[in-house]
Design a protein around this nucleic acid. Sequence first.
DNA 1: CTTATTCATCGTAATATTGCAATGAACTAA
DNA 2: TTAGTTCATTGCAATATTACGATGAATAAG
Lengths: 110, 110
Amino acid sequence: MGLAKTEMFTDEQNEIAIFAKVFGHPARVSILQHLFKIKSCVCGDLVSEIGLAQPTISQHLKELKYLGLIKGNVEGTRVCYCINVENWTKMKETMLQFINQEVSKTEDCC
Amino acid sequence: MGLAKTEMFTDEQNEIAIFAKVFGHPARVSILQHLFKIKSCVCGDLVSEIGLAQPTISQHLKELKYLGLIKGNVEGTRVCYCINVENWTKMKETMLQFINQEVSKTEDCC
DNA sequence: CTTATTCATCGTAATATTGCAATGAACTAA
DNA sequence: TTAGTTCATTGCAATATTACGATGAATAAG
């Protein structure tokens, strides 16, 4: 199949999985870290920063953009990407709630 | 390919991606939420709780166990799973550092 | 207009993931 | 022993992901 049966899970569970999935590749992690750290908005320098081919980077950027985590701005022949802070904050809340779960302290059988 | 070029990324970036990937499926998110919430340690009830076939759940559990996020304990014919709190905490620190990144406030071109 | 630059898209190959039926292994109950 | 229960593993089909060469679209430079 290779296809997740999303209909049997809650919206929240699917949302967490979708966000997590996009972080599930080191190139996208790297792109996001760059966009956070770099002084001005980085454009296609991502291709030289990271070692992957230009179409590959472009594809990863597309996925990040599709989820709304980054914004792109055309500037002549270049495209300037940066974090979509508002959406990142929303994602953050969802993910933090999942990651920060506390174990209900009862009998531990393991 | 379908194969990430991990050698061109830092250990940290790869680690984040590996953890994120395991959260990238709603079934695994659901399993973890169950293990966090349930009063006593859950065993194979996960199969009836979630709607997937037993081999499918078993496979997801295997991945979670491989990353050390859960522990399994054999009890007769049943197996009791629960969160590996120590490893979960470690994962948490890594992921939080990534998710909590602050945008360096400079010119925003987007 | 011509050429170069930058980036997106298309097409494709290699590999990974998901899901389940069938089966096996380990234990329990009778 | 025999039969039932529970879970892991195997094998396979369907689909998704990753990576990149080739190409196209848009703009800039000459």
